[in-house]
Each structure stands twice: as C-alpha cells, then as structure tokens.
Design a binder for these strands. Structure first.
Length: 259
DNA sequence: AAGTTCGGCAACCGCCTTGGT
DNA sequence: CACCAAGGCGGTTGCCGAACT
C-alpha cells in the first residue's frame, strides 16, 4: 500500500511514514504552524524533505481531514466539478471540505472516471429529456450557485500560528534572511549546507533514534535559538517573545546548524 | 493452496507559479 | 528584468491486499 521506507544519499527519509513521525509532525505544526516547509523537518526532528512533510500534513494529518468512504453526494460533486474544472484537483478540494486534492484525484482515477464515462455513454444513447442524468445536469447551475458554495478549506493553524505570515507579516523567507547573516554562500542554504558532517542525520536532534522522545522534546523553533538566560522571556506573548528571540539570535549570531 | 492479476492509495517527482532580491 | 527559493499542483509510481485462476 505504501512505499517502503528508505534513505536517499542525503540521508533524507522516503517512503511510508511511521506513527512516530506523524506524531512529531502533528505536534510541531499544532504548536508552531508551518512557517517554512523546507526548514520545518529539521526543527520538528524529522529526517524528511519539506515537500514530504507538507504532503503528509495536507493529505493525512491535517485536522478535519476525512479518509475513504466517499458519499454519493461527494462523488456526484466530483464528477460535476470535473466537468467544469477538468483536472483541477486542488480547486475541487476547496468544494469538498475534509478532502485533499490527492484523495479526490485518486478517487477520480479509481472509481469516478469510469463512472463518468459510463454515464456519458448512456447519455449519448438516450433521447433528450428522458434521462436521469439530465436531472443531474440541470443541477449544474445550482451547483454553481448553491451546492458548490465556496466552502474554502482554511488553514487555521497557519492563521493561528504566531509565526504565520497572516498574523505577523513575516515573509516566508524571513528566517532564511537570518541564516544568510551567517551563511555567506552565494547560493541559498540547502539542506546539505546545514549538515556539518555525514553524521548530521544521526545527530540526536534530528535523528530517528531509538529514544522515543516525546514529540515536543525534539522540536525546535527559531525562538529556541536563544540562550538559556533569555528564556525568562517565555512569559512574553508569542510575537513579542519571538521577536525578542530573533533579536537575541542576531545579537549572538548563533547558528544552530553550524554548532 | 499457490501463483498471478488487479485495484486502491500513499507518496514521490518534476514542472509551474509566485514572491523576494 | 533576471535570478532564485519555496510552495503548490498534477501526473506517475510502488507497494500491498483482494480477487481471481
């Protein structure tokens, strides 16, 4: 059902996600949001690519996500939406709360494509006005106006996150900017740049070691860069604390990846 | 019972878009 | 304007269990 776990040459894990990985990702995003997918796995203590984390979150771990058991109504809606939108799976997912684009796409390819084709064939062979699907077709307009009210899926965690761009106006690159102060390479920092040596992925901070840490134990946030004595600031509100942490970071030019 | 084929789906890959510099 | 990085999207793959022979 799922790809066998393996590691690429950079030590990035691929394949099926374990329960522990899920829990780490869920815990981190629930706590801090996804402020930067590329860096997130490092802070969450995962040996995964940012893309992989994003995909896992969007398709599987996101709150309110539904799995399997598509209702007749959902299937009908997918078929109607496909008529209108084509293979715009992400757009379709906006109309189907709790369903990811990947799941809709899979459903289409495994079930609905054939069904839609069959219905079309029947439609072509039927006299006009005698068809059940005509009734469905008359729904097209209402689909647009009522059934398909734009129930936009929303990323409440991002919105709630103190680090989200929506709540703090921080750009997605804000942290890269910080890194650039100490990473002088002309290229933007890559995963490998953060790896001081071949043991990078085996470091306790990042690795899937056998010590089952509680999820939060292995999570880091930019604010975690501050020195211990700065942690008294923990009582500050999130934004204030984060900014003071950033200030502290800049002041000390502390780069956790190079230490 | 054993081998083969098929269906379902999680996950990966590569391309495109967007935003920042 | 060009370049780069990150995010997002759609197509495809790989694996496993179920169904079939």
């Amino acid at each position: 059902m799922v790809k066998t776990p393996s590691y690429d040459k950079n030590g990035v894990k691929k394949g099926a996600w374990s329960e522990e990985e899920d829990e780490k990702l869920r815990a981190y995003i629930t706590r801090y949001g996804h402020w930067n997918w590329r860096l997130l796995p490092q802070f969450a203590g995962l040996s995964r690519s940012g893309k992989s984390c994003r995909l896992r979150w969007v398709n599987y771990l996101r709150p309110n996500i539904k799995h399997g058991n598509f209702t007749k109504e959902e299937e009908d809606m997918i078929i109607e939406l496909h008529k209108k939108l084509g293979n715009k799976w992400s757009e379709m997912s906006a109309y189907l709360p709790g369903r990811s684009d990947n799941e809709i796409k899979n459903r289409w390819h495994t079930h609905l494509k054939k069904r839609a084709k069959d219905e079309q064939t029947v439609h072509e062979n039927q006299p006009i006005g005698t068809l059940e699907s005509d009734q469905a077709n008359t729904k097209d307009d209402s689909v647009e106006n009522t059934d398909l009210q734009l129930i936009k899926d929303f990323d409440f965690l991002l919105a709630d996150s103190p680090l989200s761009s929506s709540s703090t106006s921080l750009s997605s690159n804000w942290f890269n900017g910080l890194l650039d102060t100490s990473c002088s390479s002309e290229n933007s920092p890559q995963l490998a740049d953060y790896a001081p040596n071949d043991n990078f992925w085996n470091e306790p901070f990042l690795s899937d070691n056998n010590n089952i840490l509680s999820s939060s134990d292995s999570m880091l946030l930019p604010s975690d860069f501050v020195y211990q004595d700065s942690c008294q600031n923990m009582n500050l509100c999130d934004d204030e604390f984060i900014w003071s942490s950033i200030d502290s970071y800049l002041e000390h030019s502390y780069d956790p990846f190079l230490n």
